[in-house]
């Protein structure tokens, strides 16, 4: 039960690691009310009309960037966008200088994606604005984990007691770490599955099950979260070929139908169709991939709203 006077325990959203269970429950509760808002004929509310938010994307993004932008607009915030490819970062400006220059334009919140792990933590210690981490290297992607948990909650009523398998490129994935922490805090059981080379060596210390055979993981879980193979982050070969990876870890309709139960398929996007998922699985009724995208806007509205009022 949510206490009406409850607040977030943190001023920034840097990672799931800093959130308590009640923080996460508060965010999911609030997201539920925003989901109703974004399904109204007029989807805008005036809550953040006196707040300015800068979206700083030092790395490519489609979904997260659009989703944050939409969430900010639905809350009536003023926004400025920044992409590093078209900026003075290429002229050698440091991160703190870039952000302080943006803050000098009277910005209250910063949403940042950065290729380096810990960039948002570093920033939160050096600038005044509230920081929201929209993905930092292979470290954390808290709003993705929150929207995944919210999607599971919407589908099953609760997250507690559910079995979630995170399958694929766990090593390069920030979604995996944030998901593991978030799901565990909400009382779910988590398994990671993938080839040995793509499972980090010490991941067992987080208290997750480790499995190397796809079929075993699928038979165990209620929800399979299929991760993308992040070819752009792999400087060496972690498996002999994409074709072999697909044969061992790709999910197709045949495997899905051979299970003796109906599991739910999630994917944080973007999908490599035909690699980790075949098209007929991605578009099947067991897949909630597009619900995740819709829920993403509601969850990000909740995060912005709660942080703005803290």
């Amino acid at each position: 039960m949510i206490d009406q006077t409850q607040k977030l325990s943190t001023r920034h959203l840097l990672g799931i690691k800093d959130l308590s269970q009640s923080d996460i429950e508060l965010i999911l509760y609030t997201a539920n009310t925003f989901k109703e808002v974004i399904n109204r004929p007029i989807k805008k509310v005036p809550s953040l009309r006196d707040i300015t938010i800068a979206n700083l994307f030092f790395e490519n993004s489609t979904r997260t960037k659009l989703s944050f932008e939409l969430a900010e607009k639905r809350l009536s915030a003023d926004i400025i966008n920044f992409a590093s490819s078209a900026s003075s970062v290429n002229k050698g400006e440091t991160l703190i200088d870039t952000v302080n220059n943006i803050l000098a334009m009277k910005v209250d919140m910063v949403v940042m994606r950065h290729p380096y792990a810990g960039a948002s933590i570093f920033l939160s210690k050096n600038v005044k604005a509230q920081i929201i981490n929209a993905g930092d290297g292979a470290h954390e992607h808290p709003t993705q984990a929150l929207l995944d948990a919210f999607s599971i909650q919407q589908k099953y009523g609760q997250v507690q007691g559910k079995k979630v398998a995170i399958i694929g490129d766990v090593l390069h994935s920030r979604v995996a770490l944030s998901n593991i922490l978030c799901l565990q805090k909400l009382g779910a059981e988590v398994m990671v599955c993938g080839p040995t080379t793509l499972i980090p060596k010490y991941i067992g210390s987080l208290g997750v099950k480790i499995e190397h055979r796809l079929l075993n993981a699928l038979n165990w879980c209620d929800v399979a979260n299929m991760l993308r193979i992040q070819l752009e982050r792999q400087e060496i070969n972690y498996f002999p070929s994409l074709r072999e990876y697909t044969l061992m870890y790709g999910l197709n309709k045949q495997i899905l139908d051979s299970l003796n139960k109906e599991i739910t398929i999630m994917h944080p996007g973007p999908i490599n169709r035909g690699v980790e998922l075949t098209s007929d699985v991605a578009d099947s009724k067991q897949s909630i991939i597009l619900d995740q995208v819709e829920n993403g806007v509601a969850v990000r509205m909740a995060v912005l709203y709660l942080l703005a009022s803290s």
């Binding site: 949510i2 009406q4 006077t5 409850q6 607040k7 508060l26 509760y29 609030t30 539920n32 009310t33 925003f34 109703e36 808002v37 004929p41 509310v45 005036p46 809550s47 006196d50 809350l75 709203y305 709660l306 703005a308 009022s309 803290s310």
Partner: peptide, 27 residues
């Protein structure tokens, strides 16, 4: 009707305003 997001004292008052649900299934 929940009016939380339309309040004029957001960020001006101590304490949170947690939203409740809106349920209006007609125009």
């Amino acid at each position: 009707l929940d009016i939380t997001f339309f309040r004029d004292d957001f960020r001006r008052k101590e304490g949170m305003h947690l939203p409740s649900s809106t349920h209006i299934d007609f125009l």
